[in-house]
């Protein structure tokens, strides 16, 4: 046995040394990381982009103090460049006024800030098309609603829907129907029972929205559902990012709606 003592000792030392290495944590400290929330939309007066820096675990819970101002934010499309300007009233909120995104178009975003690495990201705006709404009430008063599936450029297909119903007078008193007010679904129809269409036993007007989103925002929404650390999860931890050198998303959405008037 002793003859092999040196070999055993050597093997032990080699193993011992090789086992000491730990995988390197290459993720920057939270304070050094920019997070971006930006969504290009078809029916808004101004496009908005929010910049935050990350916070350490012991930091305060007030999100406003993590807003990052003083960034240079540029959107480029088809050789043209547009500059976002920081809102005077909301620090860390950058706006681009009077800008309407076009279907099947690639938009590139560059964010420069002296304290953070440069961020580059892009979104492919969904193909805009008619949702081809149709609906009817059956004899039981149940609503049957259908629409055409929305196909995206780049071959990516996803459908995302929302509906609301409200009173007829200008929609100021909108009331969300059900506990969920949006759905991701591959379905192209919806059947709502009559009793669910009543508010205080009165028939009310209905307004339904259907969305077409790009892959970035769709993935972010799924991530938000899947990665809640307090919930049961199949998956391990991950930081969400569709952008280089930072966290968050730069996504886009096309929204359409239909109003069904049926006020008593």
């Amino acid at each position: 046995m002793m003859r092999y003592g040196k070999f055993i000792l050597l093997a032990f030392l080699v193993l011992f040394v090789s086992c000491l290495e730990l995988p390197e944590d290459v993720n920057l400290p939270a304070e050094k990381v920019l997070s971006v929330s930006a969504l290009l939309q078809n029916d808004v007066a101004e496009q908005r982009l929010y910049l935050y820096r990350g916070g350490a675990v012991s930091d305060t819970s007030n999100p406003d103090i993590f807003r990052v101002s003083g960034a240079d934010v540029r959107l480029s499309v088809n050789g043209l460049t547009y500059n976002y300007t920081e809102s005077d009233t909301s620090k860390g909120c950058y706006v681009l006024k009077n800008f309407s995104p076009q279907g099947k178009t690639l938009y590139r975003l560059i964010v420069n800030h002296p304290s953070f690495p440069q961020i580059r990201t892009e979104t492919l705006y969904p193909a805009i098309q008619d949702f081809n709404w149709s609906y009817f009430f059956d004899s039981g008063g149940n609503l049957h609603l259908s629409w055409r599936k929305n196909a995206y450029c780049a071959g990516y297909r996803v459908d995302m829907y929302q509906w609301k119903y409200g009173f007829h007078n200008g929609w100021e008193e909108e009331y969300f129907w059900g506990s969920e007010n949006y759905y991701f679904t591959p379905d192209t129809f919806l059947i709502i029972e009559e009793k669910a269409l009543l508010h205080q036993n009165r028939k009310v007007d209905l307004k339904f929205f259907v969305f077409a989103v790009d892959k970035n925002y769709y993935d972010y929404s799924r991530f938000r559902t899947y990665f809640d650390p307090l919930d049961f999860r199949l998956v391990d931890f991950g930081n969400f990012s569709t952008i280089e050198n930072g966290l968050g998303y730069f996504g886009s959405v096309y929204r359409d709606s239909v109003i069904i008037l049926r006020n008593d």
Binding site: L22, N27, A30, V33, S35, L39, V57, P63, F176, D236
Partner: peptide
């Protein structure tokens, strides 16, 4: 959990709500 970061989430696809998400190190580091 190295910290957390904020993102806006458009739950109703109209107005955003701010959410904090944990910010993690490289897995099991």
């Amino acid at each position: 959990t190295k910290g957390y970061y904020y993102l806006h989430h458009y739950i109703d696809m109209v107005s955003p709500t701010v959410f904090a998400s944990p910010y993690y190190s490289v897995i099991n580091s």
